[in-house]
Amino acid sequence: MAELVAAGKQPEILFWVGCAGSFDERAQKITRDICKILQHVGLSYAVLGTEESCTGDPAKRSGNEFLFQMQAMANIQVLNGYNVKKIVTGCPHCFNTIKNEYPGLGGTYEVIHHTQLIQQLIDEGKLKAEGGESFKGKKITYHDPCYLGRANGVYEAPRKALEILDTELVEMKRCKSNGLCCGAGGGQMFKEPVKGTKDINIERIGDAIETHAQVVAAACPFCMTMLSDGVKYFEKEKEIQVLDIAEITARANGL
């Protein structure tokens, strides 16, 4: 972003990568695929790079409002400094926080999640599913991330992105507003689970196994970790792939 601005250019959209997308090895792949999609459709974009910092979401949901607001205000200063208007995020948690909680602290932007961007591009005819891997006839099930679905009512965009693939889209018994959490939210990602009879991701992947889907589509880097771990727990890595919607889209277009 700094380089573009130095060159006197303003990108159409800022890609907010997020911590997982920046540092988590598995999520880095998703980040690269989102970039490939942006380049493929010729959308000018920028990332903040080292100027990006945690949105504060895990701190806020764990009760550390101080840390959250410190992070938020610092980020807002950077975003406003670059006169950012539109943001696409690779993570539903960043999406929710910037979209809903930043305006009250002085940061108002048009924020979309990458699955919404993919849906828009499909609707505009800029993105198709051709020239790449065929998902035709494959069974795919989609896991609703809490902070995209229940938290913000985004249920259709990710499904639209899958429908274009001509696959067999199957729903888990708990889906959309009834969707079961992967177990990572509210700071749980960063702590050992509280004692119980089962881990939440194991319960959730059970729903996915029941559908006999070959692909579990995710739209959140934390769900990605939890669901992948669930698949490993049942030793189903050969039968079930966990892929982000961005990865599926990139593959289908041979990017």
Binding site: V17, C19, G21, S22, F23, Q28, T31, R32, C35, V47, G49, T50, E52, S53, C54, P58, Q71, M189, F190
Partner: peptide, 17 residues
């Protein structure tokens, strides 16, 4: 600036690999 112990200087490493 991240929930994990990574240096913020490495934030753009995903673009290099």
């Amino acid at each position: 600036g991240a929930p994990w112990k990574y240096s913020n200087a490495d934030r753009l490493n995903w673009a290099k690999t």
